[in-house]
Design a protein around this nucleic acid. Structure first.
Length: 422
RNA sequence: GCCCCCAUCGACUAGCGGUCCAGGUCGCGGCCCUUUCAAGGCCGUAGCACGGGUUCGAAUCCCGUUGGGGGCACCA
């Protein structure tokens, strides 16, 4: 039987990275098995924010590459079906009216148990199960009623969800049995925590997919990182392409214990992916990111600057800080120019009529100038770097100067010489 | 309060009774390389929560303790 799984977010805001991790496990499982991954919105009303959230959810999933099968469905559309089933349950004596609402009669004795794919057997004493409200007094079905019904109607074979749903599972199991349907396999994956062991939230840093996108993370790196949160193929492999993840994923290897989100490791992984991309591809991503984040920078210059920083940046968002000097004016801190006056003058002289004005020749000329002053490369190049790029940290100096061009370089050298301490 | 879940280096994890005085990755520290910052190379740091069992033998199985998390809605 083909696997059918689903992601069933409630449209209450931006897509939380923890939910995405759960969605990813569903997706990986479906793709690994050649099954289906469905997207279902668990909404119960139709406000404007909902429509917006639904768009954002889809947008985030697409960006990450989590494609879903079949049409997007809405819980709202099946309210009538739910009500019909509720009436049948009442007619069969399995549910009853209570102050206008309808409650489902839970068993009073024994246990409700299931074999959880990630945790093994879980048991619930039935005496602890309350008769859940399945239809509110206003006629709308509740989550604990609509959700399992939809799982049945959609032919969901495996319900992979957050472990906060464990207490709901025995209720849903009884409901499904009551309507005479087969129960799906359940798997409860642990939540994702912040560094303090508390559920990941805004105060820990970025939490929504949109946050990570704006931070300049690559979707493939984020996916790789997320997959490793609670799952590992063998304990040795860490960098895996999407195809490899799909090929190697298995629910049985998902850990039952909660994981902490390590931003530093994500950062490192992103750098790994960024460096592995071709220059052209990085330039392309950079351009997209810049466009999405309000930068209207010359595409050709961005492309030419890319090789200078591909190894130095770890996220796309770091690009502007590194290369801003190529796209706008700089304001060097005079204190950083300290003691460099003679080298600035020497650099000016070395570059004023240098031909060709290319990195290699520039390096030769500047090294000769430094030699002439008896300066170590380190001492000599730093003031030049500050004058030209406005910062003590920059891409390679000679390549930077080539890209900047002679005119701008010389004027910055002179401005710095004039502004710096004598 | 009641119910449920979880427990290997700081973090993510491998380990499914002997091959583990516990392996990999991030981080951290040191060294090398070096025009800054990175990247890269090498070396190092650090862990089976505790207590009882079971067994010839336990990180691995069982029980308890402690610690963390979650749930107890006419929310999802």
């Amino acid at each position: 039987m083909a696997v059918v799984v689903r992601m069933a977010p409630s449209p209450t805001g931006l897509l939380h990275i923890g939910n995405v991790r759960t969605a990813l496990f569903n997706w990986l499982y479906a793709r690994h098995d050649g099954g289906e991954f469905r997207l279902r919105i668990e909404n119960t009303d139709t406000s404007r924010e909902v429509a917006e959230a639904v768009d954002q959810i889809q947008d985030s999933l697409r960006w990450l590459g989590l494609d879903w099968d079949g049409p997007l469905t809405f819980q709202l559309d099946r309210m009538d079906d739910c009500r019909r089933v509720a009436d049948e349950l009442v007619a069969a004596g399995k549910a009853y009216e209570d102050e206008g609402a309808i409650r489902f009669r839970m068993p009073d004795e024994g246990v409700t148990a299931w074999e959880d794919v990630v945790r093994g057997r879980i048991e619930y004493p039935n005496e602890k199960l309350e008769d859940v409200v399945i239809v509110r007094s206003d006629g709308r079905p509740t989550y604990n009623f609509a959700s399992p019904l939809e799982d049945v109607w959609d032919g969901i074979t495996h319900v992979i969800r957050g472990d906060d749903h464990i207490p709901n599972t025995p209720k849903q199991l009884n409901l499904i049995r009551a309507i005479g349907a087969d129960v799906p396999v359940y798997g409860h994956v642990p939540q994702v925590n912040g560094a303090d062991g508390k559920p990941l939230s805004k105060r820990h840093g970025s939490v929504s997919v949109q946050d990570f996108r704006a931070d300049g993370y690559l979707p493939e790196a984020l996916m790789n990182f997320l997959a490793l949160l609670g799952w590992a193929p063998d304990g040795e492999t860490t960098v895996m392409s999407r195809e490899e993840l799909v090929a190697r994923f298995s629910l049985e290897r998902v850990s039952p214990s909660p994981a902490q989100f390590d931003y530093q490791k994500l950062e490192w992984l992103n750098g790994v992916y960024l460096r592995a991309l071709s220059e052209e591809e990085v330039a392309h991503r950079l351009l997209l990111w810049l466009g999405e984040n309000g930068y209207d920078w010359d595409a050709e210059l961005v492309a030419r600057a890319t090789p200078l920083v591909q190894e130095k940046i770890t996220r796309l968002a770091e690009f502007p800080a590194f290369t801003g000097f190529l796209f706008g004016d700089v304001e060097p801190d005079p204190a950083d120019l300290d003691g460099g006056a003679s080298m600035l003058a020497a650099a000016d002289e070395a570059l004023v009529s240098l031909e060709p004005f290319e990195a290699e020749a520039i390096e030769t000329a500047l090294r000769a100038a430094a030699d002439g002053l008896g300066l170590k490369p380190r001492q000599a190049f730093q003031p030049v770097r500050v004058a030209v790029t406005g910062s003590k940290v920059s891409p390679g100096l000679f390549e930077s100067i080539e890209l900047l061009g002679r005119e701008t370089t010389l004027s910055r050298l002179r401005a710095a010489a004039a502004a710096g301490p004598a």
